[in-house]
């Protein structure tokens, strides 16, 4: 065997440039236990030494709902598509929160983890993935709150419509998380060199929320000139579909939802490609 040293199998070859499609997806599977550990760490560590612990996840949507109810419901008088206003805003906030936290947290992957990335190798994609997964738990808690509210209103003239359309919800959560992850890792790769973009993310997400039907229903924009802006936002069909799944009212078609899915797939593909190119040498530029 020693005679054929040149032909022997090498487990790993470290080269200056990797091919564009060398994505280490096999590595990702090997490190699946690490993914679980990170999810656990994210969740457990955040609530150490707090009194309310995960209950903090409920305070934010409750306060925001009250705020929206006042500003957009009472002051601006925007209709809610026949949905009970509290439920309307809370459902929007719940699904939007999941996207925004996925997007903002993953977009700083390289910068916030440069300490650990500089010391040890593991597939870097584990970190953004763990963010998206651990936030599903948070989404679950907020969704539970929404359910409690729905049950409350069930006995106050807004009966719950249970049906097959509830099966849409897991798919919608995956699309939201997927778009957040895809856009997040594209940005995280670019911020290693051009730190300007991290500033953009902060208020960009806020502005994006107003370009998504969170505080107003899509039907409210019927016949308005700028409607195309909102419609071209891939998050729009997801939000509308989410409300449709829960309350039976919402404007989306299979093709608009298909557009969202296509957008997710493309942003994930582009994201993973850029990310795996960046992870190889970002330590020199970060």
């Amino acid at each position: 065997m020693t005679q054929h040293t040149d032909k022997t199998h090498w487990d790993l070859v470290i080269k200056p440039k990797a091919s564009l499609f060398d994505l280490h997806l096999k590595d990702l599977w090997q490190y699946r236990d690490l993914l679980a550990q990170f999810v656990k760490r994210d969740f457990v560590a955040q609530y150490k030494q707090t009194i309310f612990g995960p209950i903090w996840n409920l305070i934010q949507p409750i306060m925001t709902t009250i705020m929206f109810l006042l500003v957009f419901g009472k002051i601006a008088n925007i209709p809610t598509d026949g949905i009970q206003p509290v439920l309307f805003y809370m459902s929007g906030i719940t699904i939007w929160n999941y996207f925004s936290v996925c997007f903002t947290s993953t977009s700083s992957t390289f910068v916030t983890n440069s300490g650990i990335f500089g010391k040890v190798y593991f597939p870097r994609l584990i970190i953004p993935l763990s963010v998206v997964l651990s936030n599903i738990v948070r989404f679950g808690i907020q969704f539970f709150l929404l359910l409690v509210m729905m049950i409350w209103y069930h006995f106050h003239n807004y009966p719950i419509h249970f049906g097959l359309n509830w099966l849409l919800i897991p798919l919608l959560v995956v699309i939201m998380g997927g778009i957040g992850l895809g856009l997040g890792i594209i940005l995280s790769s670019l911020t290693t060199k051009y730190r300007d973009l991290s500033i953009l993310v902060g208020f960009g997400v806020q502005l994006l929320m107003y370009a998504t039907p969170i505080v107003y229903p899509l039907s409210y924009l019927m016949g308005k000139k700028y409607r195309w802006v909102i419609v071209s936002n891939p998050l729009t069909p997801v939000t509308e579909a989410f409300r449709y799944a829960l309350f039976g009212t919402g404007h989306f078609t299979l093709s608009t939802l298909g557009y969202s899915i296509l957008f997710m797939v493309i942003s994930l593909l582009v994201g993973i490609l850029i990310f795996s190119q960046t992870e190889r040498s970002f330590m020199d530029t970060v």
């Binding site: 090498w10 070859v13 470290i14 080269k15 040890v120 190889r280």
Partner: peptide, 14 residues
């Protein structure tokens, strides 16, 4: 340890 890449040359590991 693969935290950065070489500019030239390569490393083979078993």
């Amino acid at each position: 340890s693969r935290t950065t890449t070489p500019t030239k040359g390569n490393i083979k590991i078993k």
